[in-house]
Nucleic acid binder design. Structure first.
Lengths: 343, 343
DNA sequence: GATTTGAATGAAATCGTTCTCACTCGGCTT
DNA sequence: AAGCCGAGTGAGAACGATTTCATTCAAATC
């Protein structure tokens, strides 16, 4: 039995309404406010959020449904969302789906039951499609992954542009047989694959690509399959797990990097700069993505009827030794200092 | 205006009580249950969790307060906790404090207001001390970091033993000037430092250690400070961020590893096996820690008066090239296949 | 056939807040 | 001096579910 507002009211010798006013907003004399605050301290009273939410009909909470809490991309975004939410006086309910559409559905239902104010979501392809028919009752902002066109506000990386940058860079370095490994569960993988295809075509090169589960283990099989079609000179991975899998497989096969196989991918995770040679990657603006998503959500709450907005953010290419020139093979294993440029 | 249980009742031609019974447990005829379920589907009704919690006086939720969501150790534990909670029919409210005692306090207050059923907490030293006086109203299980002795159930790594293992290993490899860098915000850093001190003493070696903020940048200054006292032959870092900082600093100073400086640390993160040479680490049993914490919490809820339990789990040493023998300097840069053994 | 039993259902209380409404009581205006 | 106003306060309704209690009705018992 915890202490309720009535206990505080009794202790302070006032009515429950007065206690509520003292703690929240509302006209109250300074004397009584102090008296109530003292009673709160004395009783150790903590308001019951369930009751508050029920009565005031607002949760003060937004939902954040992510595909993989173990992926630094998502934890980075989550941090930014939480910071922005906190500044807006909102709490964040964080859920992790592990790319499982069933868990996504369960969490979407939960969000309805929690009556969250709004929702930020990184959907799998399966859920993204279902979203068109069964739209949640509250405003939704999609991040990282596209949804049904024109229905939801979204914050996305310029995936096609990012892929093109990598292809352009590899082509400029003299690579021609450039293969790609893309995640199959997310729309992001599709977009990056499309960008890759387009860029390859632009260079007059033949694309060679595979869609696989976004797991390091799947990369091994993907690499093997692509090698059967003729050994590639360079490879692009559409996320950091695949990239890591590629690196492991390449090492196991005793490929020298970049002499035997150049590597490039997405997400500037710490390890990509620590291995020898460093891996060329597209760095995503995690902080900006999270804050932009929160900003879109807040504006949508303010003006529900505003037109749907899609914000595309550019990544930043971080060039490292793993894509050093194929024409002038390096004779030192030292990684060159990384150079960066914006898309 | 969302649909409530009354709307469903009206649609099904029954009373709200019957709807409640159809959805939950309680005696109800199959015919009516089907009728109600149909009405639920038709109206798109989702129960209001705030109302349910208020009335039933239980949140069905446990709180999980972590120091750093960006640290793979904590995300690993969080996964396990969530999985175990799900199996027990509980939800998880995940909060990230970024090692900030003020945010910890705020989240502790929030947990009270949410009336969570129980709490799993990785406290900073500041909060761990305060916990003795201001104990939360619900059961608490501490993980990763010690609290006031004998007051709370806890799941900890055998930190002293793990440090000793590293020191023993380094000493066996012929290193004598072994320095240590430990995080200052957590009790874990203290325990690992104590284990290091004891092991050094046992080997008749002079300890040289620093406590720093658990950030990669702080490691640089720490290394410099320790080098001034005479250059160490080997270094131990008490967490992966510090370890990464050490590696960066060592490379910047052009130290060869392990010839100029051997390195060892905690947490078997992917990058520790990818860099050349691989880094020797203590791997923590993330899954076991999370599940054990959840198990302790559930038992505490069942029998509140049971004696306080402290579970210590052993880590597993993963030996890699970064601690190769100092006596027989390796002439190949290839990492030896990692060997592992349990403490 | 009357009475007991028990399952199925509905009416209404309840959880802890917030908020509307009515009321009181000084200080102003005219 | 009578009326008005506005600030401060309390009484009580309401939020949406669960749960207790009473009621109904059919089957089972004697």
């Amino acid at each position: 039995m915890t202490t309720s507002i009535k206990d505080v009211a009794r202790a302070a010798g006032v009515s429950p309404a007065t206690v509520s006013r003292a703690l929240g907003k509302g006209p109250i004399s300074e004397a009584l406010r102090a008296q109530v605050l003292e009673a709160v301290r004395a009783t150790g009273y903590r308001p019951n959020l369930a009751a508050r939410r029920l009565r005031s009909q607002e949760s003060g909470t937004i939902g954040l449904i992510l595909a993989d809490i173990g992926n630094p991309f998502f934890t980075g975004v989550a941090r930014a969302v939480e910071a922005a939410a906190y500044e807006a006086g909102l709490r964040v309910l964080l859920c992790n789906t592990d790319e499982d559409p069933a868990r996504e559905a369960a969490y979407l239902a939960l969000m309805q039951e929690e009556r969250v104010t709004g929702l930020i979501l990184a959907p799998t392809r399966a859920t993204a499609e279902r979203l068109a028919d069964a739209a949640p009752a509250m405003p939704v902002v999609l991040i990282d992954r596209p949804g049904p066109p024109g229905l939801f506000d979204s914050v996305l990386l310029d995936n096609a542009g990012a892929s093109a940058t990598l292809v352009d860079h590899l082509a400029a370095q003299g690579y021609r047989r450039i293969a790609g490994l893309f995640g199959q569960t997310s729309g992001t993988g599709i977009e990056r694959a499309e960008g890759y295809r387009a860029a390859m075509a632009r260079h007059g090169l033949t694309p060679a690509l595979r869609f696989v589960l976004p797991q390091a283990e799947a990369a091994e099989a993907g690499l093997a399959a692509l090698c059967q079609e003729g050994r590639p000179e360079a490879m692009i991975a559409s996320n950091s797990l695949l990239l890591m899998g590629l690196l492991r497989s390449a090492r196991a096969a005793r490929f020298r990097i970049p002499a035997d196989l150049a590597l490039a991918g997405f997400d500037n995770e710490p390890w990509t700069g620590l291995v020898e040679p460093g891996i060329t990657v597209i760095e995503q603006p995690l902080e900006a993505i999270g804050r932009q998503a929160m900003a879109l959500l807040l504006e949508r709450l303010r003006t529900p009827s505003a037109p749907v907005r899609k914000v595309m953010l550019s990544g930043r290419a971080i060039l490292r030794g793993s894509t050093a020139s194929a024409r002038a093979p390096h004779n030192s294993t030292k990684t060159p200092p990384p150079s960066t440029f914006t898309l």
